[in-house]
Amino acid sequence: MDIYLPIADLPVNVFLVFAMGTAVGFISGMFGIGGGFLMTPLLIFIGVSPAVSVATVAAHITASSFSGALTYWRRRAIDLPLAFVLLIGGLTGTAIGVWLFGVLRALGQLDLFIALAYVVLLCSVGGLMVAESVRATLRAHRDRNKTVPARPPGGHTWVHGLPLKARFKQSRLYVSILPVLAIGGTMGFLGAVMGIGGGFILVPMLIYILHVPTNVVIGTSMVLTLVTMGGATIMHAATNHLVDALLALLLMVGGVIGAQFGAQAGQKMRSEWLRLLLGLLVLAVGLRFAVNLFVTPGEIFSFRVMEGGR
C-alpha cells in the first residue's frame, strides 16, 4: 500500500517505511544508540532526497530521545551543569550546521556533501570500532584468567590541563569547558548536517576524552541529543521547510516497536560481539555510500523540476 509524502514529494510503501523504522529501532535498542546514522542513508537509498531525509530523521530522533532522557531524569542519572555547557556548544553547532545546510542546498552541492560526509565519518568510525572490538576479543581470549583493572574515570590527560576550568560535581570532574563546548558543537553540527544523533560518537568522546562516569554519560548525552536535534528540526522546518511529519510519524511507530525487541536481544550478547556487529554495520553503510559515489549510475542523465517552477 503506497502513501504520498507531501514534503518528500514521492509515494512510498507504508509497510516498507514501517519495516525500516522497526529494523532501525531494533538495532537502536540492541546497541543503545540513536540509529540516525542508519535511518538517513536508508531513506536516501529508497529515493527520499538527502535534504528531506536529514531534516525528517532529526524530528524522528527528537521524539525517540525524549522518552530516554525522561527515564534518566527520573533516575537522577543526568549531570545538568555538564549538559548545559554541552548544549551551549551544541546549539551553536546546530545553528552553523543549518546555515551551511541552506547554503549548500542553494549551491546545488548538498547531496554530494552529505554523501561524502557519510563516507568519511562512517568508514572511519566503523573501521575503528571493528579494529577495537577485534583487539578486545583477542585480548579477552589471551587474558581470560587475568584481571585487568579498568582505567579510573578521574585519570588526567592533556585535556585536563586546559584553562577555564569548571567543576561538575555529579561527574566528579574538574575540567576546562573548552573541550566540552567543542564536543557539543561538533555533535550539534553533525546532527544538523547529517541527521544523526551521534550517540555512538558522543558517548565514547565523553568517556575517553573527559572521563565522564558511565552512570551519567548516557543520560547526559541524551539531553544534548534531544535539545540539539529538536533545535535542528525547528530550524529546518522554519528555514528550509523540509521536515516531512508523515514520514517521521511512520518511522517513530516502527522504531518504538523494534526498540523493545532489540533491547531484549542485546542483553543476551557479549559486549565485544555487540561492538563488532555495530562496527561492521557502520562500515557497511559507509561503503555503500562510497559505491554510490564512484560507480556510474544506470541512467547518467535525469530531469528534475526546480523550486519555484523554473
Rank of each mutant, 00 (worst) to 15 (best):
246 L>V: 12
211 H>R: 12
152 P>G: 14
265 A>T: 08
266 G>Y: 03
245 A>N: 08
212 V>L: 00
24 V>G: 05
251 L>S: 08
132 E>F: 06
207 I>T: 11
308 G>V: 05
99 W>V: 08
79 D>A: 11
114 I>S: 11
56 T>D: 12
213 P>L: 07
273 W>R: 15
53 S>T: 06
116 L>Y: 12
101 F>E: 04
188 G>P: 01
28 S>R: 09
186 T>M: 15
79 D>C: 12
175 V>L: 07
195 G>Q: 08
271 S>K: 13
308 G>L: 09
277 L>F: 13
200 F>H: 00
304 R>A: 12
68 G>P: 07
151 R>Y: 09
25 G>A: 04
29 G>Y: 00
280 L>H: 05
24 V>W: 01
125 V>K: 05
283 L>N: 01
173 L>R: 08
89 G>A: 07
15 F>T: 10
305 V>E: 11
220 T>V: 04
94 T>A: 07
111 D>Y: 08
163 P>W: 14
113 F>S: 13
76 R>Y: 05
52 V>P: 06
295 V>N: 04
57 V>D: 13
69 A>C: 03
256 V>M: 13
139 R>T: 10
20 M>F: 04
252 M>V: 15
11 P>N: 02
6 P>R: 03
212 V>M: 02
309 G>I: 01
10 L>N: 00
257 I>T: 08
287 L>D: 02
140 A>K: 10
260 Q>M: 10
236 H>K: 08
284 A>M: 14
42 L>A: 11
214 T>E: 11
55 A>N: 09
252 M>I: 15
114 I>A: 12
66 F>T: 10
164 L>T: 01
306 M>K: 15
191 G>D: 01
308 G>A: 11
3 I>L: 06
234 I>F: 15
27 I>D: 00
42 L>G: 01
276 L>A: 09
128 L>H: 06
106 A>Q: 14
33 I>Y: 05
42 L>I: 07
26 F>S: 07
80 L>Y: 15
215 N>K: 14
262 G>Q: 05
280 L>K: 03
135 R>P: 11
255 G>Q: 04
224 L>G: 10
128 L>Y: 03
244 D>I: 12
271 S>T: 11
144 R>Q: 12
117 A>T: 09
209 I>P: 07
22 T>C: 10
271 S>C: 00
140 A>W: 10
13 N>D: 12
89 G>Q: 01
291 V>H: 13
77 A>N: 09
44 I>P: 05
97 G>A: 12
294 F>H: 09
295 V>I: 13
259 A>P: 02
98 V>E: 06
297 P>C: 02
78 I>V: 12
202 L>Y: 04
138 L>K: 10
132 E>I: 03
68 G>V: 11
163 P>M: 14
201 I>F: 11
85 V>F: 05
85 V>A: 05
107 L>Y: 07
194 M>E: 05
308 G>E: 05
65 S>H: 13
108 G>Q: 00
37 F>C: 06
28 S>Q: 06
305 V>Y: 13
16 L>V: 12
29 G>I: 04
266 G>V: 01
304 R>D: 10
250 L>V: 14
7 I>V: 15
223 V>P: 06
102 G>F: 02
47 G>P: 05
194 M>T: 07
109 Q>E: 11
149 P>K: 00
202 L>C: 02
